[in-house]
Simulated scan of single mutants.
Amino acid sequence: MIFDLWKQIKAKKFSSLYLLYGPEAFLINETKQLLINHLLNEEEIDFNLSTYDLEETPIDAALEDAETFPFMGEKRLIFLQNPVFLTAVKTKEKVEHNLAKLEAYIKEPSPYSIVVFTAPYEKLDERKKVTKELKRSAAILEAKKLSEAELMAWIKDRSALNGVEIDDKAAETLLTLAGTNLFTLTSEVDKLALYIGSGSKINEETVEMLVARSLEQNIFSLIDKIVNRQVEGALRIYYDLLKQNEEPIKILSLITGQFRLIYQVKELARRGYGQQQIAGHLKIHPFRIKLAAGQARLFADEELAHIINLLAEADYQMKTGGMNKVILIEMFLFRLHDQAYKK
């Protein structure tokens, strides 16, 4: 996993070439910062750290820098951003790149420079010679969105880096409360570790006490109350959101989005799609699909259709100024209780 690469960097076992690619910006940024912190001291950064945007600068200029002897240090660190020539994307490039020179450099990289390609692209073009050569020679980080199992492993590894443990239930609760964003998860794990102290174990109670619930998580909890016919609990969460200065129109939009997701998951599951397939089809993280699938099982089709109609009506009233925005969501919750769930 990513932590294996990070451990090598921390042990100062560097590669001459790195290829960091994928849409998960957090992983790329963390790796870049680790390289800076463990390769260069503060005095060397001004002299031996360079960054080139390859959409603006030809590769030749960057390679000349890589072949320049470092000043006041042993190594130069060079970041090459946006190497679009590694992809199949057709663009009107502002600059021309001498890819033959790059291929030659990849075969014989400078012994006193570390060159890092940062490519925020979902896919690279594996048919291109330069891509093949780079993937063959470089240390690679595929910065992809992590699956639920990988996120659980991530949380445990991050906890270990902080000198603490976290049990499975606590990690799962953290995912549910904080979501799947790695920036948020890292911040929360670091906070939990600081609270319990080195050598301790993070449990579910500590997570529930300390982890801030995101707006999306509060909406999920609100919907969970609705699903379980607990309108009083739903209203309590709604009023808490209003106290936090959340706009009713935003709350309504998130509720609507979640119920649409529940409906889509239910329909696609009926067609025989698995949860991973649904996640790929809807371009939504599998963990959210798993949670929505659990909620979908508690609704009949006609109930979901009724709820979506109520939400559409509330949205129309809210946008046309027909009623007080705060009251509209209250009415939605009461109507849902009185009409949709009366047997």
Rank of each mutant, 00 (worst) to 15 (best):
T176P: 00
W6T: 00
D301V: 07
I249R: 14
A138D: 04
I2K: 00
Y239D: 15
P120G: 07
F47V: 00
I106Y: 03
S221D: 15
Q258A: 08
A171R: 00
D315L: 08
E303A: 08
E205D: 08
S15A: 11
R260K: 11
L215Q: 14
F183C: 02
A66K: 01
A25G: 11
F299L: 05
L311I: 15
L39G: 01
G163N: 06
Y239I: 13
T180H: 07
E303R: 12
K135I: 07
L40F: 01
L54V: 09
K290W: 04
S159T: 15
P58E: 11
K12F: 05
E330H: 05
K156L: 12
R297L: 12
V207W: 06
Y18C: 01
V231L: 07
Q81V: 04
I9N: 11
R260A: 04
I262G: 02
E267W: 07
V130Q: 03
E247L: 13
F79E: 09
G274V: 08
T180W: 03
M331G: 03
L268K: 07
W154F: 15
N162W: 04
I278W: 03
L5V: 14
E64N: 07
L235R: 11
K191S: 01
R335L: 06
I28H: 04
K13S: 10
F79G: 04
H337V: 00
D65C: 06
G233T: 10
I140H: 03
T256A: 13
R127N: 06
D301L: 08
L17V: 01
Y18W: 02
H337D: 03
L241Q: 12
E232K: 12
M331T: 07
K107N: 14
D46L: 00
I219F: 15
G199C: 13
E208M: 15
D157W: 00
G321E: 12
N48P: 06
P58V: 08
N29W: 13
E142G: 03
G294Q: 14
A25F: 13
I9T: 08
I78T: 07
F287A: 05
A269D: 04
E93F: 09
D65H: 03
R136W: 07
K94P: 03
I308R: 09
G22Q: 09
Y112C: 04
N245S: 10
R270M: 02
Q276V: 05
A61R: 03
I329N: 03
T320K: 01
L291P: 00
T31D: 09
K10V: 05
Y52H: 02
S16W: 00
E165D: 13
L49C: 08
E303G: 04
E56H: 05
E148F: 00
L39H: 01
A340P: 01
T184E: 12
R288N: 09
Q8N: 12
E188P: 14
K325A: 15
E44N: 08
L222A: 10
L182D: 01
K144T: 06
